[in-house]
Design a protein around this nucleic acid. Structure first.
Lengths: 309, 309
DNA sequence: TTGAAAGCGGTACCAG
DNA sequence: CTGGTACCGCTTTCAA
């Protein structure tokens, strides 16, 4: 491996000068500048970021920890933004397992990343805090049981409320719900929006089941719903939607599905349905920006961004 | 930041001893072991992977460079496997831009990753080689113009051939194709499979257009196809499929779509179509395993894995 | 079995 | 403007 030392020797200058050159210091004699440039080319030298990190205590890397890698969200947006500022992304998925999440956080923390974007599992803010310490950390999509982190979420309650009102006005009356787990903040909010809409129109909930945020959860939930006389169902998350669609496919009945963040191209589908789209680009953009802001200003007051519409 | 030094001082031993303890050296006096364990707990010490990498020259990180992050394919599988061996993943997307790809590779190389998984853009093997140097690198899904890297691909030609035969036997006769770019290896293979099937049944290609592997490419291509009397079309990649579906949706005509790796749940769709599924799990699993193998054995002969079925 | 010390490849300070 | 040098936190000899 070619080091700064080799370059310095080749160019006949000190390592300090080479380091300054690399970092764009303008106060370098033109002659030396050329010498160094030439030596670097000749030797094919490239900075070793690890060594640099050792000294600067910055890795220019951010860690993205996601409850599940299949739900890759707006990685693209996040990467576009942070990479403009020279950051790379370390990703880790938790396979839906909360303990794994803590393990991954710990692992990344050891790698000295400059900040976290966490799409969290569970509720335990303190446990997360204990791991991340004073490394910046932005929560995305879900909140924890204490408001000690910056966050970017959507207005789940309102989004569901408005969509359900639409559906009810459209004429559906016997509406059921497949809820998500109570320990996921957005599941609770979505449920609240759902019931608020029913209440407004004086409707009873036809049938309610509570299931994991998973394909299988949606599948099992939908099977139960299909055993009732419900004519529509609100499904709380995109994985559940996939499961619900599968369940309906193997049944003779077709009921109207309202999904939170379901299928991309609903107009292609053969069934009556309607989805509440997640503004994932918006979420990703905000998360990335907020993290960079936080990194550059540790003392900033905690910011909770709620994206509306 | 708590360092090994702090721990050594607290425990009243030398740093070497602490280091040995951390790395599971068995030859440590029991008394010292306890002392160190206690000191670590008390201080909340955690290894600094960066410092360790500096010395060991291994970061336990692998870089995954993808032509486009939206096509995240089997990240999950890859991560599952490599993380079992203690590796983390740095991802980078290229936004479909070949120059960006080289930039990202360079960036990750500087971060001293232990290996690359590359879903490449372009053809230039030498250019990639110049950047990665002797860091291990596995090509996935597409090959480059020289066989100097390990690779994991599917048997595109056969997969397309077999599916097209099926379609033809099913009764469709006026079949068109939306090709992918000639400089993407799998596009050429898929095209070959397509024509081979037509040839076998003595059919002429009804209409052929060449488009980018992109949603818009598929859209534009499909518009042209719909202007002909074709009754079916083979669409070369999943992004193109999405575009083609959109085009068909705003048209009055419905023709049969055969897509390479299209929509998850075709049985939900309202239109006649059939997709050739990519065995993404299989691909990811093989890529991860192959990379680990290569990392642990630099001298292994180049391996080109082709997944059939 | 252990502590001391020499690096790993940079950065940054300090004296000149 | 520059070269020399002391770190950054850890691993790994080496001698005790």
């Amino acid at each position: 491996m070619i080091t700064i030392k080799d370059v310095a020797k080749e160019a006949g200058v000190g390592v300090g000068t080479v380091s300054r050159y690399i970092n764009g210091d303008s106060s370098i004699k033109n002659k030396n500048r050329m010498l160094i440039e030439y030596a670097i080319k000749k030797l094919g030298y490239e900075v070793n970021s690890i060594a640099r990190s050792m000294k600067t205590q910055k890795t220019m890397t951010i860690g993205v920890v996601v409850h599940s890698l299949t739900n890759m969200f707006s990685m693209k947006v996040i990467e576009d933004i942070v990479s403009k500022f020279g950051y790379s992304i370390l990703i880790a998925g938790c396979g839906g397992n909360e303990e794994v999440q803590y393990k991954k956080l710990t692992e990344l923390k050891k790698k000295m990343i400059d900040g976290f974007i966490l799409l969290p599992l569970g509720q335990n803010a303190q446990r997360v805090k204990d791991i991340v310490g004073d490394t910046s950390c932005i929560l995305v999509d879900r909140l924890l049981d204490e408001n000690i982190f910056d966050s970017v979420t959507v207005d789940n309650e309102v989004m569901v409320y408005e969509k359900m009102c639409e559906i009810i006005k459209f004429g559906l009356k016997r509406i059921g719900i497949i809820e998500g787990p109570d320990n996921i903040s957005n599941a609770v909010e979505r449920k609240r929006g759902f019931y608020k809409a029913l209440l407004k129109y004086g409707l009873e909930c036809a049938v309610s089941v509570k299931e994991d945020y998973s394909v299988n959860g949606g599948f099992e939930g939908m099977k139960k719903i299909l055993d009732t006389d419900a004519d529509a169902v609100f499904v709380s998350n995109n994985d559940q939607v996939v499961g619900a669609l599968k369940a309906m496919n193997i049944s003779e009945k077709n009921i109207f599905i309202v999904g939170f963040d379901g299928i991309d191209m609903p107009w292609l589908l053969d069934i009556p349905c309607s989805f509440i789209p997640q503004p994932i680009e918006e979420i990703g953009k905000n998360a990335a920006k907020l993290l960079l802001e936080r990194i550059s200003n540790q003392d900033m007051k905690i910011k909770n961004i709620v994206i509306r519409e």
